[in-house]
């Protein structure tokens, strides 16, 4: 199907224009493949995570010590863990928690970042300088260290992890939004709005923020995998979710001991489920970024 989309260049034209047209077609095709595989994977993951827990009435915590550490089979496609729980089911629950944390934290981080960046840029002058130095100061502390510090202040649970991820990940969005707003602020249409009596608030909300929303949305999508990894890292270190609750980080953490005994499946599958959705989300965000502005890549990379 996809092969038929690219027209074969006519022989006469191909000889004159060397290979430029065909390479362009190949680029477009690669992009389409990337878009569809990413969208399929993300769709499948989201559907699984949303539908499986309510539809399959099984207890993910059900322990069966007689079936512990079984390798993958038809009964247990991902095998079982060291207390005999079905790993596929645990992974679905873990992914559910990780995605939830990732989504909410990315959303909150984007909101904070957009608000701070837009405020700094539209106020300008001293406020801008002071705010951006504060952002730099935040950014100079390693993410994970700051995250651990925040998590340590609360009892383990989902919300402290979300807060920790959100408070450490808004910096890049703030920078992106600020630079976009600064470049828009000197356009004549902003002058026209000022001359028409618009207040600072109105100029920001009506003219500046709508213009940076695509970039902020893209930053939010790119933030979801970041947040998932951060959550997994915290859980892996034993600082995130309580260890009985399935999360990808917890699964890898508890499977570490059996890895040394040669049981590879309890670490492999949670790890894969962390990496594959991440790559799929990054693929989707990449397509979106190329549509927005193919030249601007540095800040909006995973």
């Amino acid at each position: 199907m996809a092969d038929r989309v690219t027209p074969a260049p006519p022989a006469t034209r191909a000889s004159r224009t060397t290979r430029a047209p065909r390479r362009l077609g190949a680029g477009r095709q690669a992009r389409r493949v990337r878009l569809w595989t990413s969208a399929l994977i993300v769709g499948a993951v989201v559907l699984t995570v949303l539908l499986v827990p309510p539809l399959v009435q099984l207890d993910e915590q059900a322990v069966d010590l007689s079936r512990k550490l079984l390798p993958p089979s038809w009964d247990h496609p991902f095998g079982t863990d060291d207390v005999g729980r079905d790993l596929l089911f645990r992974c679905v629950y873990g992914l559910r928690v990780s995605l939830l944390v990732g989504l909410v934290a990315a959303l909150v981080a984007t909101l904070i970042g957009t608000a701070v960046g837009a405020a700094a840029a539209s106020l300008g002058g001293w406020t801008d300088r002071v705010v951006m130095r504060i952002v730099d100061a935040f950014a100079s502390v390693p993410h994970l260290l700051l995250g651990i510090f925040i998590v340590a202040m609360f009892r383990p649970g989902v919300w402290p992890v979300i807060v920790s991820v959100a408070l450490t990940h808004w910096l890049s969005t703030a920078r992106i939004v600020r630079s976009e707003v600064l470049s828009l602020r000197s356009r004549p249409y902003i002058d026209a709005a000022v001359s028409g009596g618009a207040s600072r608030w109105r100029v920001t909300v009506r003219h500046l923020l709508p213009a940076v929303l695509p970039q902020a949305g893209l930053a939010a999508v790119l933030m979801v995998p970041h947040a998932m990894w951060h959550e997994s890292a915290l859980s892996f270190l034993g600082l995130g979710l309580p260890s009985h609750q399935a999360s990808l980080g917890n699964l890898v953490q508890s499977a570490r001991s059996s890895l040394l005994a040669g049981d590879w499946w309890p670490t492999l599958f949670p790890g894969l489920l962390l990496i594959v959705p991440t790559l799929a989300l990054a693929g989707l965000a990449g397509v979106w970024r190329d549509r927005l502005n193919p030249r601007r890549r540095s800040e909006l990379m995973l």
Binding site: R187, P188, Y189, D191, A192, A193, V194, S195, G196, G197, S199, R200, V203, R206, H207, P210, A211
Partner: peptide, 26 residues
């Protein structure tokens, strides 16, 4: 700019040279 009182700002109407740049595309 913003610091000027609104009544004074709106006493003057401005038309710029490049209409593309002086219209919000949205």
């Amino acid at each position: 700019r913003h610091r000027a009182p609104r009544a004074l700002r709106t006493t003057v109407g401005v038309v710029f040279q490049q209409p593309r740049m002086s219209a919000d595309p949205r």
